[in-house]
Each structure stands twice: as C-alpha cells, then as structure tokens.
Design a protein around this nucleic acid. Sequence first.
DNA 1: TCGATATAAGACTAAATATATCTTATATAT
DNA 2: ATATATAAGATATATTTAGTCTTATATCGA
Lengths: 156, 156
Amino acid sequence: MRLTRAGEYGIRCVLHLARHGRGTLVSRKEIAARTDVPPHFLAKIAQQLAKAGIIEIMQGANGGYRLLTDPSEISLLAVIEAIIGGISLNDCVGRPESCHNSALCTVHRVWNKANQQLRATLQETNFATLAAEEACCLTPFPEAGGHNPLQRKKMI
Amino acid sequence: MRLTRAGEYGIRCVLHLARHGRGTLVSRKEIAARTDVPPHFLAKIAQQLAKAGIIEIMQGANGGYRLLTDPSEISLLAVIEAIIGGISLNDCVGRPESCHNSALCTVHRVWNKANQQLRATLQETNFATLAAEEACCLTPFPEAGGHNPLQRKKMI
DNA sequence: TCGATATAAGACTAAATATATCTTATATAT
DNA sequence: ATATATAAGATATATTTAGTCTTATATCGA
Ligand code: SF4
Ligand code: SF4
C-alpha cells in the first residue's frame, strides 16, 4: 500500500525536467544530484519513462534527458504507472481471475471504486501545476554547497 | 501499492464472522477453510484483530473467534489498519520527516489528499453492508465437497 | 483428574520484491 | 581519437511478505 522508491524517483525526475520546461536537455548527473536519486537507478527509471513516451534520452557527450511533451500534458498517474505498472490496491483489482469470487464479491467492488478514485485523483494532477510553485520541489538551489539535503531512507 | 495478503485475509475473516452476526463463536478451523486462509496464518491475523478490539478469541476446546461489536460498526478501514498499520500511499505521507522537503512539496500535498480520500472511502464501508448481499463472500456453501474453490496465488 | 481439542506465542523458513550497484557496450561532441 | 555520457543487463543485498513449525496454555467433557 505504498509507492515504491522507483515510482517516487520517477516523479522527481519528471518534476525536475518540468521545471526546465519541455524540450530542455538536462544531464542525468544533474537530475540525480538535484533530486537525490542514485544515478544508476535513475538510468533504469529513465528508460521506463522513455519507453512510455514521456521523456527522450540523448546519448553521448552532453547527453541527458528531455521532456517530449508539455508538462501540463503529463499526469502524475502517467508517470507512476510508467514505472510501477497499473495501480491496483488489491490483487483482485488488477487480476480479477486471481480470486474466483471476484464477480460476486462486495469487497471487490469497494476496491474497484477506491482504485478508480485514486487513479482519477492522480490523473487530474499535471506537472505544470506541480512545478508551478516556486519553493517546490527538492533542491532548488544547487549553489547550496554540494551537500545533499534530502534524507534518503536508510536501506543498507 | 497493493494490500498485503494478511490484510485481505483479515477482511475475509471479519466478513465471515459478520455473516454469523455479533457474538457468534466460530472456530478458526471453519473460518480458515471457508475463506481459504492458512490456519496458522489466520491465527496471527486474528491476534492483531483482537488487539485492535475487533474480535475476541476464545481458547480451549470448542474455542474460536467472535465479533466484539456489531458488523455495522466495523469499517473496512479499521480492519485493514489493524492488520497492516496506517495506510500511507507514499512514505512521506506516514512519515513526513523521511523527506526534508515534505513541508514545501506540491506532490506531497497530492499524496496527502489521495490518502485521505482512500481512507474515507474505506471508512464509509462497514461489514453489515458487506455481509448483506447473499451471494457474497467466498465459499457460501460448505457442502460443496471439501475441495477449495479459491485460487490462492501461488507463492511457493 | 485426564485426555482430547483448540488457540497462544513466537521462532523459523522460503519466496518475492525492492533497491540498488557494477560492468561492458555504445553513442556523440570536440 | 578521446573524453564524456547514457544503454543494457547481470549481479548483489536488504527488506518485506507469506507461510510453517514447535512448544505452551487454556477449556471442555468423559
Ligand atoms: S474475496 Fe473479494 S476482495 Fe478478497 S480477493 Fe476475492 S474478490 Fe478480492
Ligand atoms: S519529494 Fe515530495 S512527494 Fe517525494 S517524498 Fe519528498 S515530500 Fe514526498
């Protein structure tokens, strides 16, 4: 019942790109540093975003990532589902065949409704809106001195 | 972004008890068989439900579980959170201190809203309503012959 | 009182998933 | 050519999930 780190990182990446606007090339290194995402992990996430048609990846020296469409046309939902696949709050929502009872189950209907509601909320939110507020998001001031202000959850 | 099996099993357990009504004692064995939950696993889940004040556990021969309150007073949310703890769709929802940016983050606000919405939907649903429809839920007819009609997801 | 039956409690195990990291290859600017 | 950047995929580790097993305890009924 929780978004994965990969999903969260994907959102950070697109949000950072959105703050630069559509089409602006930003290096993976910069994105990774400014959003506190491990660079190699970001690479994998970026590939999923590229496959979903959200960003374009430029190889070679001075390479990086850029948004393919306007931030206002990219929903939070699209980014999340590009990374973690379709949202389904219970197994039977995404795979009704996993429970023979799903056709009759009243609980199943509640999950379906809740799932739909959640997806709607995330779909209504676009990255132009998210990027609009000045104070947000993550490390707006790179001149802060190189230290990383985000407290990444300790995993190891 | 998915309910755990334990959470799903907890719901099945309470739903089964709800169909018997408040105060009716039902053996763990029967509940486990009728809802396709491994009996030992159900024991652990039941202990969490008991700790949350939802059911009472009777030991000894002819023991079992019973609902402490009327099904109409038990919400889907209460059962889920008794098992998996508080719902939080993103880490920063439940632990804002996990991301130093949460106070300013526009994405964080969306998650908070979505989380609240989801909890509201689950809270509105009570087990009297869920148990009301005849066809639901799980194995309504024990005389079916002992085979287990649910297709539990293969884990091992 | 004794034995059968039921759950309690918690240790233990196995599988799946999440979270990276490392290595080698490939593309591009200069 | 070389330096720099990402691609792609193998590998590694940690965490969580899911389930099992063992020993102890409680209760009923003969
Ligand atoms: S019992 Fe209902 S809610 Fe649970 S998995 Fe089956 S269909 Fe879904
Ligand atoms: S960047 Fe925003 S949404 Fe992401 S973890 Fe931090 S507060 Fe939450």
